[in-house]
Design a protein around this nucleic acid. Structure first.
Lengths: 198, 198
DNA sequence: ATTGACTGAATGAACGTTCAATCATAATGA
DNA sequence: TCATTATGATTGAACGTTCATTCAGTCAAT
């Protein structure tokens, strides 16, 4: 372990792994410590308490998502392409980081996602809002609050990935293709002609 | 308490209340018992263990949703109207039964939602599939697997209600209107050129 | 007298957190 | 250079609490 930041990160990653393996309920501090090759008490050098650790994971996850998505976005492309890239990249990110996906999904409905946490500035939310705003600015999608749009799109990506994972057997049995959902959503938000949809 | 069924139900409702008030983590058997005016041990007359109780709540909730939705659906109306009624009714149901909403949302991502539970016949899922199938049969919405459609729609209703609740402050601040989402989804799934006018 | 639901104190496992003790490293002084 | 001290991270056993579950005994209804 080179320095303190590395150790903090390894504690966070250890906790993430445990959430992935055993769910939110299955990440006792004792296990987090063992996974991170650290004593239980050490965790309290880096985090005030378990809640602080959980919020630490949230910030870490949001940061990872922001990097991944912003690196892969190309603002010079037309917005429809960017939208499907966004969908594809976010799906890919979640599937490559199932621990972050599982954690994020559970965190948002948990008491840890307090008013205080919600009101903290969040680089990822801000990036996503700017993304959809730019789609409106170039007239590719309808005038809609970008907060609504990012909630709509992110919710659907999140749940599509979740459903793929949770209902794997059932979906295979019924030959369901969830790729369709991105097209349904795009059809819903794109600027159609004539635009008298409401 | 008139009979055994009443007592079983009152245990389930007590557990639901606790999930609503304190989240999934905050419904210890001792509290469930106290809320239901029953001794802790009594719960084990009706349920094998806590997991069995949780799955019992799930079945109870699905049953409530099925009744509510099927009673309010009118198959003689055109499908667009039925769709917006569906959206409205389900939203209303969740808002009137926040405990069921909160429980359902958490249950689906929990280890309790096992393969075994998923493969059990589920009246609510079957009803929803038939609902969307009938929309396709009359050409109002595109040919899409009804499983995909109900996942898409139910996910969005669920998360819209959730976001309304969780992000109340933030949404009010930014003057966000989430009603739009139902129209976005409808625009996405409806059949652009209705095929059978006769 | 028999049955079966019901009770609630008791049990033991699991958890978050603490803290006295230990250790590695850096700073100091001769 | 080397011995001593100071600093602060690290340890893990121990603590107090909470939880699901059990079961010997009670009670109500037949």
């Amino acid at each position: 372990m080179e320095n303190l930041l590395d150790k903090k990160q390894s504690i966070i990653e250890s906790a993430l792994e445990l959430v992935h393996a055993n769910g939110f309920h299955g990440c006792p501090v004792s296990q987090v410590a063992k996974n991170a090759s650290v004593a239980a008490g050490t965790i309290y050098t880096y985090f005030e308490n378990k809640e602080d650790l959980i919020v630490g994971i949230y910030d870490y996850a949001a940061e990872k998502i922001t990097s991944y998505m912003s690196e892969r976005d190309d603002a010079s492309l037309d917005f429809e392409t960017r939208f499907f890239n966004y969908w594809h990249n976010f799906t890919e990110f979640y599937e490559q980081h199932p621990a972050i996906h599982g954690f994020y999904d559970q965190f948002l409905n948990s008491p840890f996602n307090s008013e205080e946490v919600q009101n903290k500035p969040n680089r990822w939310h801000e990036w996503a809002h700017r993304f959809f705003q730019s789609g409106m600015d170039e007239g590719a999608i309808r005038e809609t609050n970008p907060v609504v749009l990012s909630i709509l799109v992110n919710t659907n990506i999140n749940s599509t990935v979740k459903i793929k994972k949770n209902f794997k057997t059932k979906l295979a049995k019924k030959n369901v293709n969830l790729e369709e959902i991105s097209h349904l959503i795009w059809a819903g938000i794109k600027n159609a002609e004539p635009k008298n949809l409401f």
